[in-house]
Each structure stands twice: as C-alpha cells, then as structure tokens.
C-alpha cells in the first residue's frame, strides 16, 4: 500500500512541489512584514526569522495534512476502495500505507522548509539533534492532521466538505497559537486558547529543539514533556478515529 501511494505521488509530483512554494512565500512575506519585531527583547538573539521558521514548518505540515483525505475520496468515487476492502488485507494496513507515505513526504518537505529558512537567515543552534527533534514534532502533528483529514473524508465522502472543513480549521489553528507571535504578545483569550492548541505544542517543541534551549536547560522540560505526550496521545486518538471511520464506511456499504 505504501508503495502504491509513493508511486502515485511521484506521478503527481506537482502537488508536493506546489506545497513547497507556500512556505517560501510565507517566510518571505511574514519575515519582511514583521521584521521590525525582531528588535523586541522577547525574540532574543536570533531575530524574528529564527522565531518564525518553526511556525512556518508546522504550517506546511498542517496544510499538507489537511489534504490527506482527498486520495480516499478519489478511491471511493472510482471503485478502488471497494477493491481494497475486498482484498485479504487488514483495514489498518489500508490506513497505515497512506499515512506512512504522507509522513515520508512530510519529513522531506519539513527538511526543505528548514533549508529555505536557513537561506532566509535563520540559524539553528540546536544542531542536527535539534533539527531531528523538530522533525519528530512535525511528524507527530502531521499524524494528527493526516488522520483527522482521512477520517473526515471517510465520513463525509465529499471533496467540497473536506476542503471546506480543512480551511475552517487551518487558519484559526495557525493564528490561535504561537506560530507567529510569542504568547506574551497575544491577547489573554488567545493565550488561553493557544495553550491548548496542538499547533502551539508542536511549534514550541520544534522551536526549543532548533534554538537549542532544549539542551541548555533553559526550557521548561516538564511543559515540553507534557506537550510531547499530549501530541503523541492525540496522534494515537486520531489514528483510532481513522480506523473507526473506515470500518464505519464499510458498514454503510
């Protein structure tokens, strides 16, 4: 199943390629518009671009993940899904195959975004281990959103509904988090929401890895552990939801 999705992605490589154009635009756009913020003491030595890159990394993950379900809608409409469900393979294998493909693409995209960030002037004092830590955080967030998108696709079976719902979630999830602004600069109610936003958890984990605060003891280890654990738990729940959705889909046939 994994190979099938990888080959399909290779044949439609413009999709992932176009999704890489978005982070370039965001880094240039937000980096330039908010460049003056870099002088604020809250951004420390790295300036705003170093603060922004982990946020853009997670935005890329979020937007790619939100589209993950569209492949299933194509399969349901074409009859390929019926073939898969009548084959002697487990329902979880059907889900896992596509999820793995999404995660592999996601890691490649994330690495490229970090490269683009470096070209834009961001530095990663956390080194290779910090970068790997950021990629793990991105993978956890990707799992959550890929699974959620797949579950919604299997439940609604409608491309328009999936895209509409994704767009409704993606922007608020981005702006009600610390993707672009530190919590201290956000209004109180946004801070309250951001604290429970998985996007914030992933961004903060990646940020502490990339800026090295994870390793020099200046980051709140307890909070990071809680955020990492919560992301892991959410990813497991989202995967379970997807399995439930595919079984529900089959029951409805």
């Amino acid at each position: 199943m994994f190979r099938r999705w990888i080959v399909a992605t290779w044949r439609q490589v413009w999709g992932p390629a176009m999704s890489l154009l978005q982070p370039v635009i965001w880094i240039v756009l937000f980096g330039q518009v908010y460049t003056a913020l870099g002088s604020l003491p809250v951004f420390a030595d790295g300036g705003y671009i170093a603060y922004l890159v982990p946020g853009i990394l997670m935005m890329t993950v979020l937007y790619s993940g939100a589209w993950a379900g569209t492949g299933y809608i194509d399969d349901m409409n074409s009859g390929v899904m019926d073939q898969l469900l009548s084959a002697p393979i487990s329902r979880s294998a059907i889900i896992t195959g596509q999820l793995l493909q999404q995660l592999v693409i996601n890691v490649l995209q994330s690495a490229i975004v970090l490269g683009i960030g470096a070209l834009a002037g961001a530095r990663y004092p956390g080194g290779v281990v910090g970068i790997l830590f950021a990629l793990v955080a991105a993978t956890l967030l990707a799992t959550v959103f890929c699974c959620a998108s797949t579950a919604v696709a299997l439940i609604t079976r409608n491309q328009v509904a999936l895209i509409g719902l994704s767009q409704m979630i993606v922007l608020p999830a981005t702006f009600l988090s610390t993707t672009m602004m530190p919590a201290a600069l956000l209004p109180d109610w946004v801070q309250a929401v951001a604290r429970w936003n998985p996007m914030t958890w992933a961004v903060e984990l990646a940020r502490t890895g990339l800026d090295g605060t994870l390793f020099n003891g200046s980051a709140d280890a307890g909070l990071l552990l809680a955020q990492g654990g919560a992301l892991l738990g959410l990813a497991a729940l989202a995967f379970a939801w997807t399995l439930r959705a595919i079984r529900g889909y089959q029951r409805s046939l």
Partner: peptide
C-alpha cells in the same frame, strides 16, 4: 471482484496495478 466503476488505480501502469493486486494477496 470487479466493481461497477473502474477497479484499478488510474495513476499506476497496467503492470503496476496487476503487481499491486498480487502483492495485496500475499
């Protein structure tokens, strides 16, 4: 099983579709 719609992946070649079906059956 051949379903009412097309049962094969439109992006895979003829050979890839056949091999995929065989691999899915172990």
């Amino acid at each position: 099983y051949v379903s009412q719609g097309a049962s094969t992946d439109p992006l895979l070649t003829v050979r890839e579709n056949l091999e995929l079906a065989a691999r899915l059956r172990g």
